[in-house]
């Protein structure tokens, strides 16, 4: 296959991955890595490197849109980044040491869990005034609702911080944004409103991914010829997805894509366990 044809196919696939990733809220990497590994038969480390690039592109590229809406909380974000960036360094270090088929199996398991978590219903927790650590660290704020600004405050800071460390490890280990785990830490553990959690997570995934980039570069996981169609494709797909989100039949799409992702996850686990990756 000529270079132009192969790169065009990768570009097309990446647009699809970015689009589906943004519609499902799972992020581009969730579909991108299995696609590059299972369909295009690329080395999993190169696929992860390409995914890491696309994570930063989507996070930085979409930042302005989220900022305007006034949902994201930069204090909560940067506070938790201490945990995710540290985790990312550990994860990126570990991924070089672990055998690739183990990495593939972990990827499949994380994907399966993410798909299940992404499909769940979410209800915003009852909010109460900030107490203890949340008050001292100013981990609270207001966000716009139809009834006007609504106040919220974080709880269970230590628990949320620990889950964020794990999210960072997964991000460095697998080259993904691990936005699903980040949202879980914020809206489940710390009981922040869902909308605040998702937009703050979008800010965070880029910073977390940047922490791993040096180690990925050093080990040769960043491959320019593979990364450019992926980066441009995922970015285009993600921006398109953000536009479609208000019009598309999101619920039906979500169910469909969750199934697709689950199938890919099982395939990753199977191929990994069979030692073929």
């Amino acid at each position: 296959m000529s270079a132009i044809l192969l790169l065009s196919l990768i570009l097309t696939g990446s647009v699809a991955a970015g689009l589906l990733g943004s519609l499902t809220g799972l992020g581009g990497g969730a579909l991108l890595v299995p696609m590059l590994v299972l369909l295009f038969k690329f080395d999993i480390h190169h696929a992860m490197g390409a995914s890491l690039v696309s994570v930063v592109a989507t996070s930085s590229g979409a930042a302005i849109a989220f900022l305007r809406e006034g949902y994201s909380n930069i204090r909560i974000g940067i506070f938790l980044e201490m945990a995710t960036t540290l985790g990312a360094l550990c994860g990126a270090w570990a991924t070089h040491i672990l055998p690739t088929h183990i990495v593939a199996i972990i990827f499949g398991l994380v994907l399966l869990t993410s798909a299940a978590l992404g499909a769940r219903q979410h209800h915003d927790a009852e909010q109460s005034p900030p107490q203890g650590l949340a008050k001292r660290l100013r981990l609270f704020g207001t966000y716009p609702t139809r009834q006007g600004p609504s106040a919220y405050a974080a709880t269970h800071i230590a628990g949320g911080f620990s889950i964020m460390y794990c999210a960072g490890v997964l991000s460095g280990l697998l080259g993904i944004g691990s936005g699903v785990v980040k949202v879980l830490a914020m809206d489940r553990a710390m009981r922040l409103p869902f909308k605040v959690s998702t937009t703050t997570s979008n800010f965070m995934i880029g910073v977390t991914a940047a922490a791993s980039s040096g180690i990925y570069y050093r080990h040769g996981y960043l491959n320019p010829a593979l990364d450019f169609p992926v980066m441009l494709g995922v970015l285009a797909g993600a921006l398109l997805g953000a536009r479609l989100l208000s019009r598309a039949p999101v619920r039906a799409l979500r169910i469909l894509f969750t199934v697709v992702i689950a199938v890919m996850a099982v395939e990753m686990i199977y191929q990994g366990a069979a030692g073929r990756l």
């Binding site: 204090r75 005034p129 900030p130 008050k135 100013r138 609270f140 207001t142 106040a151 405050a153």
Partner: peptide
């Protein structure tokens, strides 16, 4: 009380 300077 408690919800001052909401970070925005």
């Amino acid at each position: 009380a408690g919800h001052s300077a909401a970070g925005h």
